[in-house]
C-alpha cells in the first residue's frame, strides 16, 4: 500500500511517499529545497501563506522523486493537529482535494502519533510495546505505545515544552537559534553541577512536566550575574557552566520521567523522538539510564525526529491497518491542540 503523506502543522511544508509504512520512496521538506529550485529555498518562518505557496510544488516533487504517478497512490495521509489551524488547513485541504479527485481514501493523522512513528523508522525498531518520549519545541509528552492498540498519553508538560525552554534561555543569552544546539555546544566540557537549578517533578509518581519554573530560574541567574555571550574572558567559563547546568536540569527530568513511565507500565523499552531528541546530552544520559535499569533504548535518526511527512505517511498506514476505511473522512477538520 502506497501512501502520500502531507504535513503542514507548523513551519515545515512537507510531503512524502511511503510504501507499507516503512519503505520510504521519497520525502521532501520545503526548507530543504535548494535555493535554485523554482519555488525558492527560503525557510518559511511562519505558516499558512507560505504553506500555500509551497504545498503543490512540494507534493509534486514528492511524487516525482518517488517515481509513483498520482493515480497509483493508494491513500492520502495528512496531519490534522495539533498545530496552527491556519497552517494545518492548507495541508488538509490539499490532501482532501487530492483524495477526492483521485477517489482514494483520506487518512487523518495526529501529529504526535506521527512523531511516535519515527521510532519505527530506525533500523532496529522496537518489537514490543514501549514508552515514547516526544520532546520538541512545541511538545513534551510521554506515551505508552502499543502498535496494535494505538498510543496512550501518560503525561505532558503543563506549561512550556522542553525545546521552548532551550530556545528562550538561548534567546536571553543571545547565543543563537535553535537554542538546543547553541546551548549543547556551549555546554561541551563544562560542569553540569556548577549551578543548581530547580527540577519540577510534581509528586514522585507523576509523569507530568513543567519547564516554566526552570526558565524563570535561569533568567534570574542571567540577570543577577550579568551573564551574556559578549561578557568577556572572565565570564566565559561561568557561561559554559550555566549552559551545562541548565541543560542538565532539563535532561535530568526527561530521563527520570521516561524511566519512571517504563517502570509504571512494566515495559522494558524506551524511545525518544522530536527535535530535542537530537540533543547529544539527552541521548547520552538516556543511554546510561537504560543500561543501569536494564532497559532498551530506541533513538531514530535525527532527520525523522524533526517535523517531516515520512512519519505522517507511516502513521497513516498504521491507522489504516488498525481501523480500515473510515466514513466521512473528507469532512474531517483541523484541531489546534
Amino acid at each position: 500500500m502506497v501512501i502520500l503523506g502531507v504535513e503542514t502543522s507548523c513551519d515545515e511544508t512537507a510531503a512524502a511517499v511511503v510504501r507499507d509504512g516503512k519503505e520510504i520512496l521519497s520525502g521532501v521538506i520545503a526548507s530543504q529545497v535548494p535555493v535554485h529550485a523554482p519555488f525558492g529555498g527560503v525557510v518559511p518562518e511562519l505558516a499558512s501563506r507560505k504553506h500555500l505557496e509551497y504545498i503543490i510544488p512540494i507534493i509534486e516533487k514528492a511524487l516525482f522523486d518517488s517515481g509513483i504517478a498520482a493515480g497509483e497512490i493508494d491513500a492520502v495521509g495528512v496531519t490534522r493537529g495539533p498545530g496552527l489551524v491556519g497552517a494545518l488547513l492548507v495541508g488538509l485541504s490539499a490532501a482532501k482535494a487530492m483524495a477526492y479527485a483521485l477517489r482514494k481514501p483520506l487518512i487523518g493523522v495526529n501529529h504526535l502519533d506521527g512523531h511516535i512513528e519515527a521510532a519505527f523508522l530506525s533500523e532496529n525498531m522496537p518489537q514490543e510495546p514501549f514508552i515514547c518520549l516526544v520532546v520538541s519545541g512545541g511538545h513534551t509528552a510521554l506515551y505508552k505505545v502499543e502498535p496494535e492498540k494505538g498510543n496512550v498519553l501518560l503525561g505532558a508538560t503543563r506549561d512550556d515544552a522542553a525545546g521552548e525552554a532551550f530556545d528562550k534561555v538561548a534567546k536571553i543569552l543571545s547565543i543563537g537559534y535553535p537554542g538546543g544546539v547553541a546551548i549543547q555546544n556551549l555546554a561541551l566540557g563544562a560542569n553540569p553541577k556548577a549551578i543548581h537549578f530547580p527540577r519540577s517533578r510534581f509528586d514522585k509518581d507523576s509523569l507530568e512536566f513543567s519547564f516554566s519554573g526552570l526558565k524563570t530560574a535561569a533568567a534570574n541567574f542571567v540577570r543577577s550575574n550579568h551573564l551574556s555571550a559578549e561578557g568577556g574572558k572572565g565570564s566565559e567559563s561561568l557561561l559554559k557552566d550555566f549552559a551545562a547546568s541548565f541543560q542538565e536540569a532539563v535532561v535530568d527530568v526527561l530521563v527520570e520521567k521516561s524511566i519512571l513511565a517504563a517502570k509504571q507500565c512494566g515495559l522494558s523499552s524506551i524511545a525518544a523522538v522530536g527535535g530535542v531528541a537530537a540533543n547529544s546530552r539527552l541521548r547520552e544520559r538516556l543511554g546510561q539510564a537504560v543500561l543501569a535499569e536494564n532497559l532498551h533504548l530506541y533513538l531514530p535518526p535525527v532527520k525523522f525526529c524533526t517535523d517531516n511527512a515520512v512519519m505522517i505517511a507511516a502513521a497513516a498506514y498504521r491507522t489504516w491497518q488498525r481501523l480500515g476505511p473510515q466514513a466521512g473522512m473528507l469532512d474531517i477538520d483541523a484541531f489546534s491542540r
Binding site: C10, A47, L84, D160, S336
Partner: peptide, 13 residues
Amino acid sequence: VRVTSPTFTLINE
C-alpha cells in the same frame, strides 16, 4: 485543561 505556552502554536483557543 492545560493552559500551556502558545509560543510554538502562536494561538491557543
